[in-house]
Structure formats: C-alpha cells, structure tokens
Design a protein around this nucleic acid. Structure first.
Length: 199
DNA sequence: AACGGGTACAACCGCGACGCA
DNA sequence: TTGCGTCGCGGTTGTACCCGT
C-alpha cells in the first residue's frame, strides 16, 4: 500500500509550474460542461498534462467563479485573527467563514502579514526591553504575544481578542497605551490596532 | 538604468482520512 | 479486513513583482 505513489507523479509528461491561459481555459470549459470532481480522471479526460491534484488546486484557489480576489478587508482581517485564535491553523475551516476566500489565500495572508508584524512586535519589544530594563510592567504584558508564531498557542491571545473586537467595531477613538489602572504599557489591542493601521 | 533585497502569492509536496470493492 | 484511488489539509517552496539604493 502506498497511497502517496498514487498522487505523486514521476511521469515526464506531467506538467508542473505556473498554469498557462490555455490550460486555464481548458479546465474551465471542461468543468463547465462536465462538472468538477474525480480530479485525476478529469485531468486526463480534459487532455491536461497535469495531475488531478494540480487541477483541483487551480480550480479551487483561482478559477472558481466565486473566488474573491483583491485585498483582505479590515473586517476580514479581524475575523481571521479571531478565528485563528479559536481554531489555530485550520485554514480551510477559517476559509469557510469568509465567503469567496480560499484557505490558501488566508494561509498566505497570515504568514506574510500577521507573522511579519508579530516578528516586528517581538523585535520592538526586545529593543524596548533592553532600553527599559527596570520597567517591568511593559515586559509582562507584551511578551505573551511577542513569542514566535510557532510556539505560542492560540489560547494565549484568545481572551485578549475579545476587547479588541468590540473596540474595532464600536470605538475607533480608543486611546492608546494606558489601562484603567494607569499602568503605562501597550496592550494587545493597541498593538493590533497599530498593525492593522499599517496595512 | 541596473541591481539586490523584501514581499506577496501561486503552486507543489507530504500526509492522513475516507470511501469503495 | 485489506488494498487502492481519491480528496482535502497544512506546510513549504518558487518566482514575479515592487521598491529602495
């Protein structure tokens, strides 16, 4: 038994890499006439020198008529962060809550934008730590979220997103860096607000 | 104008789950 | 129960494009 071999192709006839316009048209026309599914036989029947897997990916992530292209809106960004806090890297599950967005798109968005900002926040934090070693209030708050993405668990920021969510929708004038006990540090919502503003 | 680094996104790969004979 | 084909997911890679120098 090797299921992997069934999907891996060592056939030199199989094309890889970027899809051409002709291939796209063939796939679109074929699916329009015969419907999607059974991707391996679809690829053969359509005359495409692609694996079924590749056809499926191309259709789902790019060619489907209901795929939304273009920038992720702030509302979608917020939703992605909330759902990621809830479910972790369950991209397809998250994508189902965002009509027209694909798991691949959301995954890429998360990796390129959110993780980048997390890293920036981390380095910012390290810098401020070295500058203000004796101000312990700062470190205790930000260090929780400044961990690398691979190591912190969604539950770390799950609760913290709740106030951010409410603030995002209802209170754009939220003032920045002081809490109600007047401790002088950046909260989760402050950081995320700044990050979103930079998009 | 040319080049190099960074970024965003399309596509591929490996693996597990599922259905069916 | 087992073997096989297929599907779907998450991680990773490749590359085109952008921007600063």
């Amino acid at each position: 038994m090797d299921k992997k071999l069934s999907t891996m192709s060592h056939d030199p006839e199989v094309r890889k890499g970027p899809w051409t316009m002709e291939e796209d048209l063939i796939l679109i026309n074929y699916i329009a006439n015969h419907g999607e599914g059974v991707w391996n036989s679809l690829a053969k029947a359509a005359g495409l020198k692609r694996t079924g897997k590749s056809c499926r990916l191309r259709w789902l992530n790019y060619l489907r008529p209901d795929v939304r292209r273009g920038n992720i809106t702030p509302e979608e960004q917020l939703l992605i962060m909330e759902l990621h806090a809830k479910w972790g890297n369950r991209w397809s599950k998250i994508a189902k809550q965002l009509p027209g967005r694909t798991d691949n798109e959301i995954k890429n968005f998360w990796r390129t934008r959110i993780q980048k900002h997390m890293k920036q926040t981390e380095s910012f934090q390290q810098q401020s730590n070295s500058e203000t070693n004796d101000h312990q209030a700062c470190t205790s708050q930000v260090s929780t979220i400044a961990e690398p993405m691979e190591t912190y668990s969604p539950s770390c920021y799950q609760g913290m997103l709740e106030p951010f969510s409410a603030q995002f929708h209802t209170n754009p004038d939220h003032s920045s860096c002081c809490t109600n006990d007047n401790t002088n540090y950046w909260s989760m919502e402050d950081i995320l607000s700044m990050q979103l503003a930079n998009y």
